[in-house]
Nucleic acid binder design. Structure first.
Lengths: 141, 141
DNA sequence: ACTATACTTGACCAATTTAGTCAGGTATGT
DNA sequence: ACATACCTGACTAAATTGGTCAAGTATAGT
């Protein structure tokens, strides 16, 4: 079970954005250089972030991206959801009321995976961009 | 971030094994039929479980597998470790004392991923096979 | 001794996903 | 007009996944 780079990059880019968008919109080029992420790839990621209204875009020279909410209102869940980074532990194709994969009973580990998914998602729902920013400035001090 | 079927199958198979190995060794064929997992694939998985001494094998007719420890001594961590289902959130190739990927500073989200990894692993370290067995018999009642 | 059962090992493979690249656009401030 | 920077979609190489297939070896029962 691993995180995809799309999810990781999205969070890295947004932390970067949050640190610099107070003055001017931040161009993807800058983020690309600072975070070492390919510009083309960033464009894909930001188009998704924009679709989910996590960022706003400003076109033209001196344009770039800005957060469309406050850092404490942007949770990891929101970011991951935007870039299709989803937590998937259960695979049962067909789940009826009482059974998995058409069987009469729930598969023996079904509850376990549900529990795990909840456990992970709770983590993502609690953490906001602001938390990460704090953590980061503390480190520099 | 998703669980691979190797990890899922390993846990399912071991729960099955734990329920039936009190009387006789359990053959992979039986597990295969009960859990709907391909026999060939189960063989791969059990060879790993055996290597990590989670199960013992008995060859020949009436042979099969048996747990080599008590269910409460087998944690999810042990199972996942055996079948190479590892939790990987951080990707930084080179991490020196203070930096990632050769840079001077830790990447802004490094602590976050570490935290997430710990959060998930804690879950795996707490859960034992016994917990799953209990949960399962409760369900049938 | 023979045979059926069941573990053992390793090679192989198709499909999917991932992590991007590439090649064009379009909008806008100066 | 022109440079900057967003926008969009097609494409692809490499890795991973989720297996299958083939050819063993060990052992219990007859």
């Amino acid at each position: 079970m691993k995180l995809t780079s799309k999810g990781r990059y999205a969070v890295m880019a947004l932390v970067d954005l949050a640190r610099f968008d107070n003055i001017n919109p931040v161009s993807l080029r800058d983020i690309s250089l600072r975070q070492g992420i390919s510009l083309d790839y960033l464009e894909q990621i930001f188009s998704k972030l924009k679709k989910d209204q996590i960022v706003k875009s400003i076109r033209g020279t001196q344009g770039g991206y800005v957060l469309s909410k406050k850092p404490n209102e942007i949770k990891l869940t929101n970011i991951f959801h935007a870039v299709d980074e989803k937590v998937k532990t259960v695979q049962c194709k067909k789940e009826s009321k009482k059974g998995c994969n058409g069987k009469a009973t729930k598969c023996v580990t079904h509850n376990l995976w549900d529990e795990l998914e909840t456990h992970i998602n709770t983590f993502f729902e609690k953490k906001s961009l602001e938390d990460l920013l704090k953590n980061n400035t503390e480190q520099r001090a």
